[in-house]
């Protein structure tokens, strides 16, 4: 400890000596010609973190997709799901959602989010005006249930300011809620994910919940632990820059 302190003093002395030498030398020289740096308009970026907590008993959430955008919505109650939403809601694959043409920035979790777990994603954009953030993820032990946030306006958030939400369960309306063996991609069944056939109401609505074999659907592969109620997740959106 003593030796360290001495070394620091020596370094400090050396540095101040060097500084003296420099200033002495410069004084006798012609000042350098002033050259204006080329004008570069600075790129202003805005950063947000999105922290998601899975509040369910036994519904892993497929890799969470977040997108920023200034127009459009990922889904609308009463309207048919887009194919990109259907692919995510039936099978947990968010690649088509991340590729929507109106996204200005996207991020994805790299793994499913287990019940009782939390993940934080971040988005960086170059625009704040009219900026919205959307989030979507599948409840994988269901036929086509998903949860998320739809076009949350974050344009008036100050740095370090946060918005907290809880999210509802939605039904993509593209696959009947049979809960049958072979139709559920999550670990409860390891069955089929996306199937382009639409054999349900073909509009997005709130999800009525899963029934399960323990609550009156004898053909269900789900058990009581797979049941869920609103809310599904807690989401905290924080502007960090």
């Amino acid at each position: 400890m003593l030796r360290l302190t001495k070394s620091l003093i020596i370094i400090a002395l050396g540095a101040s000596l060097a500084a003296c030498g420099d200033s002495n030398n410069n004084r006798s020289e012609t000042p350098p010609e002033v050259v204006s740096p080329p004008v570069v308009s600075p790129v202003v970026t805005y950063e947000f973190t999105i922290q998601v907590s899975n509040l369910t008993a036994a519904q892993p959430l497929s890799p969470i997709a977040v997108i920023s955008h200034t127009e459009n919505m990922l889904w609308e109650i009463g309207s048919p799901a887009s194919t990109a939403l259907e692919v995510m809601a039936e099978g947990g694959n968010n690649s088509d959602l991340l590729a929507v043409d109106f996204a200005t920035a996207v991020a994805s979790a790299d793994a499913p989010l287990p019940p009782g777990s939390q993940v934080t994603l971040s988005l960086t954009t170059e625009q704040l005006d009219s900026l919205k953030i959307s989030l979507a993820t599948m409840l994988v032990n269901t036929n086509d249930a998903f949860t998320g946030l739809n076009a949350i306006d974050v344009s008036s958030l100050a740095v370090d300011e946060a918005l907290t939400f809880t999210t509802f369960a939605y039904d993509a309306g593209t696959e009947a809620n049979s809960e049958a063996a072979g139709t559920i991609p999550g670990p409860a069944d390891s069955g089929e994910g996306f199937n382009e056939e639409r054999n349900d109401v073909n509009y997005v609505a709130m999800h009525p919940g899963v029934v399960s074999q323990h609550d009156g659907l004898s053909s269900s592969v789900l058990s009581s632990q797979h049941k869920f109620d609103n809310p599904l997740t807690q989401v905290v959106i924080t502007r960090t820059q």
Partner: peptide, 13 residues
């Protein structure tokens, strides 16, 4: 029908 007529709150916006 237990796969059709159930609901979870909220029921309206």
């Amino acid at each position: 029908d237990n796969t059709v007529h159930r609901w979870l709150n909220p029921v309206a916006k």
